[in-house]
């Protein structure tokens, strides 16, 4: 496919991710930090985000099924997830983390479980979208762009 067309598709897709709130301004900061000295910076950081998030989601799932839930522990995991999602600009994941932490503070298990479902959902959405974005980027490179 034509490079120009692919580039347009890439930028339209990226715009839609900003418009729908999957990504926020911080993602643009990430893009600004990518240059010839670090050509895969965004991909590398986002890959770290995937690894870190999946580890934390596992920990959270385990912590929330304990007979007596350790809310401090849950909160610590959510705090980390909030930090990493805000660092890469995954806005919707970050927003759920903020609600999640409020429920931890209230020791509200129903609220926490609801947030857990939301966070898993939002995480898989943004992961999918970012993978699409990287795929488009690869296509541009392969097309000589």
């Amino acid at each position: 496919m034509d490079v120009v067309l692919l580039q347009r598709r890439f930028s339209e897709y990226l715009t839609s991710l900003f418009n729908e709130g999957f990504l926020d301004e911080q993602f643009k900061q990430l893009q600004e930090l990518q240059d010839e000295n670090s050509p895969d910076f965004v991909f590398e950081v986002v890959t770290l985000f995937f690894e870190d998030s999946e580890r934390l989601l596992n920990e959270l799932a385990k912590a929330l099924v304990q007979p007596s839930v350790d809310f401090q522990k849950v909160d610590a995991h959510v705090h980390q997830l909030k930090g990493s999602s805000s660092s890469i600009g995954a806005g919707r994941v970050k927003d759920v983390c903020i609600h999640f932490r409020n429920f931890c503070e209230e020791q509200n298990i129903e609220g926490c479980l609801r947030c857990m479902q939301q966070i898993k959902h939002e995480y898989s959405l943004v992961k999918n979208k970012l993978e699409n974005l990287f795929r488009l980027e690869q296509q541009i490179i392969q097309a000589g762009g």
Binding site: L30, L33, E44, V45, L48, F49, D52, Q80, G83, S84, S87, I88
Partner: peptide, 8 residues
């Protein structure tokens, strides 16, 4: 302590 933030 966050590997992501260290990289950033």
């Amino acid at each position: 302590d966050s590997v992501i933030d260290r990289k950033m």
